[in-house]
Design a protein around this nucleic acid. Structure first.
Lengths: 136, 136
DNA sequence: TTGTTTCTTGACGTTAACGTAAACGTCAAC
DNA sequence: GTTGACGTTTACGTTAACGTCAAGAAACAA
């Protein structure tokens, strides 16, 4: 019975749409640490989760350094009091950062809606009855 | 009566927290085009708006090329039918992109909340009565 | 056994987005 | 009339995040 949860690097490239070079690069940066079967890399679910986190961070425009920090927050050991407070500070930073991004997105969304509306109204002037409602 | 809406490059660096090099770089990339008083640059409100758009795009993790595209959407001339449809497609792309980012942010926010909670609970184990409520 | 993939490890190349330094103009203030 | 404080251009340097070979090992298929 072959364990289908253990993946090869090619599997990951297909699953996540990134190159093998990229995956190995993340490992070289210490952000992934797949098991080895001799020379070959074996990726377990935990590695896939990590990669997913990395790519999500990238989509949000975080640098790998920032992503590493975030991930470190996730799977860090309990720690002592001072360190826990430090964690809470880090978390607060990230949350403020994300909140800023949310506001930026909202504003941009609204602006794009404006542009889209003026686009559509000009379209209906130029080519009446060429809307998108009845189509498809 | 001096026009306080016209700013120098140093004004912008202070207002937006970026270096003059950065501002000139954006100009070299064709994303800003300030007026010139001889050799010196004069930034009008429209330039400040543009810079604001650029920096917002950066916060959202867009590349300058993408930001340029977005800005071009904003201040492009009416255009013909085909081009308008093309615009609408571009807008749809960007909106999908932003929607993805929103989802990513929500998930990340929730994860961070989890981490924060477990942090706080461990803190209350280690150092009871050291909460943050009554503080400050 | 012999190909044909698929993997591996170097190692150098590339692009975006600026940083940094040199060398020079300009204009108000002392 | 020179001294700063600001501005300019030109040009080379830097960093992050990979891309792109090259050359060999391993596994799998015919």
């Amino acid at each position: 019975m072959t364990d289908t949860t253990v993946k090869t690097i090619a599997d990951l490239t297909r699953e996540f749409g990134v190159t093998a070079r990229t995956i190995r690069f993340y490992e070289a940066e210490g952000m992934l640490s797949p098991e080895r079967a001799g020379t070959q890399r074996l990726y377990h679910p935990r590695d896939r989760v990590r990669l997913k986190l990395i790519l999500r961070g990238k989509r949000l425009g975080f640098s790998l350094a920032e992503i590493r920090e975030i991930i470190d927050l996730y799977d860090s050991a309990p720690g002592e009091v001072a360190q826990l407070h430090h964690f809470l500070d880090k978390i607060a930073e990230r949350r403020a950062d994300l909140a800023q991004k949310q506001r930026d997105i909202e504003v941009t969304m609204k602006e794009l809606q404006q542009v889209e509306e003026s686009c559509r109204s000009r379209l209906s002037e130029l080519a009446p009855r060429d809307g998108r409602e009845a189509a498809e």
